[in-house]
Design a protein around this nucleic acid. Sequence first.
DNA 1: GCAAAAGTGTTGGAAATACACCCATGT
DNA 2: ACATGGGTGTATTTCCAACACTTTTGC
Lengths: 245, 245
Amino acid sequence: MEETMTAAKNRIKTFKTIQSEVESTNRVALSVDCVIFGFDENKLKVLLIRSDLKQYQGQWSLLGDLVEPNEGLDEAAYRILKQRTGLNDLFLEQVHTFGEVERHPASRVVTVAYCSLINIQHHKLKILDNELHWHDIDSVSEMAFDHKEIFDTSYSQLQKRVREHPLGFSLLPNKFSLRELQNLYEAILNIKLDRRNFRKKFFAMDFLIDMDEVETDVPHRPGRLYRFDYAKYEKSTKKWNGIAF
Amino acid sequence: MEETMTAAKNRIKTFKTIQSEVESTNRVALSVDCVIFGFDENKLKVLLIRSDLKQYQGQWSLLGDLVEPNEGLDEAAYRILKQRTGLNDLFLEQVHTFGEVERHPASRVVTVAYCSLINIQHHKLKILDNELHWHDIDSVSEMAFDHKEIFDTSYSQLQKRVREHPLGFSLLPNKFSLRELQNLYEAILNIKLDRRNFRKKFFAMDFLIDMDEVETDVPHRPGRLYRFDYAKYEKSTKKWNGIAF
DNA sequence: GCAAAAGTGTTGGAAATACACCCATGT
DNA sequence: ACATGGGTGTATTTCCAACACTTTTGC
C-alpha cells in the first residue's frame, strides 16, 4: 500500500517534467499529405506533383508539406491545399497517419494523410506546368516515399465513404445529369451499375432537385439536370443499425 | 517556359536541405493514446488511468506515452499496451490523429489514437491499484486533456466497425452463448435487438460453430455454446456494393 | 411449480435485382 | 434514317421487422 502510493507520487509530473521529456529527444517532424481526387472525362483522377526530393526525382508524389509549429493538423491540410490549388471551399478529411521509422529517407517524418475531392472544372489549378498533374486513378503505380501506400489507403477509404455519404456531388458541376452521376459512381467504385435501378435508388432517396433544365452540347437526347439538396440531406436522420460482415 | 524550369530546379531538394528544414523548428512531440475497450457483467468498459500530469491530478486519462525516436506508430501502441496491461495478442487499430496546437498544456504534443478490444476475463491486468480502472462506458464524463474527445471518436468508430466486422468476439470467452453475444452487441451499440431476429441473422451468416456444450452455473436453462469460425470468415469474400445515405 | 431464459416460424412490407421497350435529340 | 443515350415499369427475390408460444433447467 505504501509502495503503491509512492509509485503513484512518482508518476505525477509537472509541466517542467513533461517539457524536459518533450524537449529532449522525443520529437519528430510532422507532415501532412493530401490525396486530392477529381473527376473529368468520366474518369476519377488524383492530383500528383513531381517529388521535390532528389532521390525520387522524376517520381510522382502527393501534395505535402511540414506542419508549422503553431498550426493544427486540419489547418495545415487546408493551407497546403490552398497553396497548391488556390482553393479552400472544399471537403477535407483525415484518413490515416503513417509513421514507420524508415518511411522518409532523410529523417524521421511522420505524416498525416488527408483526402479531398474537388471539381476539376470549378477549381482550375493555379500552377499548370508539368510539375502538377491530374492522373487517372488506374495509371498510378510507383510513387515516391510510401505515397503509393497512402494513396491506396485513401482510395479504399474514398470508395467506402462515397457509398455511405453524399460526397460524390462535390466532384460534379452544380447541375448534373443522372448519367454523369452514374458515371461518377462507376468510376469511383470501379463497378457497373444498372441504369434503371440507379435512377430508382436516387429518386427514392429524394435528395435530387429537378432543375427543369436539360443538357446542352450532347450529341444525343439531352438528359435532365439536377442538383443535390444538401439542406434536406442534413435534416434527414436515418441511420442504419444493421449488423453484417 | 524558362521560368518554369528554373522554378522546378529550385524546388528540388537534397537530403541535406530536408534535414536542415526538419531539424530547425518544425518538430513536435508525438504520442500514442490507447482506448482499450473490454466487456464484463454485460457492460462495455473502457480502461482508464489517473492522469500523470499535476494539472489534471485526479482526472482520468487514456493510456498513452510518447513515441520513441526509433519506433513506428503501431509498434509504440503495442508497446504501451504491453507495458500497461501485460498483453500483446490483441486487436489494435489506429483511429485518428489529434493535433490541435493547444491540446496539451505543457507543449505541442500531437497524439495518434489507437483502439483495442480485450476480453477482461482472459486479460487480467498486471497493475490493479486504483491508478488503473475499468469504467462503464456511460459513466465516462470529464477527462484530462482532450481525452474525452478522443474517447468519443473511438467509441463512435467502434460502434461503426463492430457492425461491419466480427470484432465483438474478441471481447467474449472462446465459447459463448448467443445471449452473451447479443448482450455484447446491445452494450456496444446501445440498442435493443430482437432476440429471434438476432439469432436468425447470426445463424444465417454461418460463421458460428456449435460446440455441443452448454452453459454451466446459470440459474436457468443453459444455452448452447458456440465459437466464431474465423477461418471460414477470412475465406468469405462477400462485400456490399450498395449506396445509401 | 415457478422463475428465467432457451429455443423456434410465419407473415407482410420494403428494398434490391433482373430485365426490354419506346422516346427525344443531333447528325 | 439512324445512332445514341434518356426515360420508364414490372415481376421476382431477398432481406428485414414484428410478433408469441413451448421447452428446459435451477431453485
